[in-house]
Design a protein around this nucleic acid. Structure first.
Length: 358
DNA sequence: AATTCGGGGTG
DNA sequence: CACCCAGAATT
């Protein structure tokens, strides 16, 4: 045991094979115990009912930087409303965004919609079935192409995302920084391990292992089917691998939203192209030099975080006698009608305040 | 290579 | 509060 640990300590990914460490040259050494574990412990997820490429695709887009538990209900509602690529392609962007509201990264929804139209128009409604062709569609990058190609089409394609990055890094003892270009060695590890047989199940199994057993903190190595092959475990470096990536400090932002109200109607604006939450509705934000008018009533102050921006939004209500002009990007709508609009997260919080306060 | 996209859950 | 999450596109 001590011998094994000492030997593993000085082994690189392509090092000698003196011990039982994971060896990319023998993919089945990983796949066999992993798939056996997966058959018993895999998560029961709504997108795993079948291998319909459309469903796999929708789930993979929703899951980008979004946790499984959060996606479940959104996925079921979305599939219920748009059961096939044709119905999604035929929908309006407004409908798609409304179903996406609250899930975040709204560009995903617009790209999903655009890709659906392209699949219908250019591929007669059937998905491209190789990773390279899938990557031509908007919103599909290296990971998502590999996931769809392997899961829906049985292609031998690797994947690397948050779970598999951690699992593979620990498995081979990859103690260098990860993320971005630094992930390339781990892509090579993933490519070496993914088996010809059942690559889709293998990829899903790696992700489930990362989500259930090989967790970021306090992994349950005693229940891991790959524990005996894991270099990080053999060398006692589980807690240090993968190396944490430095984060940017948060920037503080202050802004003021003005609820322009006449009776039970309020003014909302659509976020312009290039702005955060492009295409979603929100209350107008006061310009930096726009003094809060006399008579404005302070309604609330809400804070929220967008990546590395910490934003405090003061909300004031300004009652007006005449309705401001409407247009494609400005609408004057009854508070009760705000439900039907796809709104930004802070905008929705304000809408709920208005609803609660009458 | 670095930045920019959300939002909620967790310790 | 810090960290995390089935990443992709843009610059």
């Amino acid at each position: 045991m001590a011998l094994q640990g000492a030997a593993a300590k000085h082994r690189s990914i392509r090092g000698p094979k003196a011990t039982r460490a994971a060896d990319p040259a023998k993919p089945m050494a990983i796949a066999r115990p992993l798939l056996a574990w997966y058959r018993r412990h895999r998560r029961d997820l709504p997108w795993r009912m079948n291998r319909d490429p459309y469903r796999v695709w929708v789930s993979e887009i929703m899951l980008q930087q979004t946790q499984v538990e959060r996606v479940k209900d959104f996925f079921v509602r979305f599939i219920d409303r748009f059961p096939a690529v044709e119905s999604l392609a035929a929908a309006s962007e407004r409908q798609v965004l409304r179903l996406w509201e609250g899930l975040g990264y709204y560009r995903r929804a617009r790209q999903l919609h655009a890709a659906a139209k392209r699949v219908v128009a250019d591929h007669a409604g059937s998905f491209p079935d190789t990773a390279a062709a899938l990557r031509e569609l908007p919103g599909i990058g290296r990971y998502t192409a590999g996931a769809i190609a392997s899961i829906a089409f049985g292609r031998r394609e690797p994947i690397l995302e948050a779970n598999s990055r951690r699992v593979f890094a620990r498995l081979v003892g990859h103690d260098r920084p990860v993320g971005g270009a630094a992930d390339e060695p781990l892509w090579q590890v993933a490519a070496a391990f993914v088996p010809v047989r059942d690559p889709g199940l293998f990829n899903q199994a790696i992700m489930d292992l990362g989500a259930i057993i090989c967790t970021p903190t306090q992994p349950q190595c005693d229940r891991c089917p790959l524990a005996g092959l894991c270099v990080a475990r053999a060398t006692g470096r589980i807690a240090e691998i993968p190396a944490p990536t430095p984060r940017r400090a948060a920037t503080l932002v202050r802004e003021t939203a003005v609820v322009i109200r006449q009776g039970d109607r309020v003014l909302v604006e659509r976020r312009p192209a290039g702005a955060w939450w492009e295409g979603l509705w929100d209350f107008p934000l006061a310009a930096a030099d726009d003094k809060v008018a006399r008579g404005d009533r302070r309604l609330a102050s809400i804070s929220y975080t967008v990546t590395h921006h910490r934003i405090t939004r003061r909300v004031v209500v300004r009652r007006v006698a005449t309705a401001p002009p409407a247009g494609r990007t400005k609408r004057f709508v009854a508070i009760a009608e705000l439900d039907r609009l796809a709104m930004t997260a802070p905008g929705r919080r304000i809408a709920r305040l208005l609803d609660a306060n009458g």
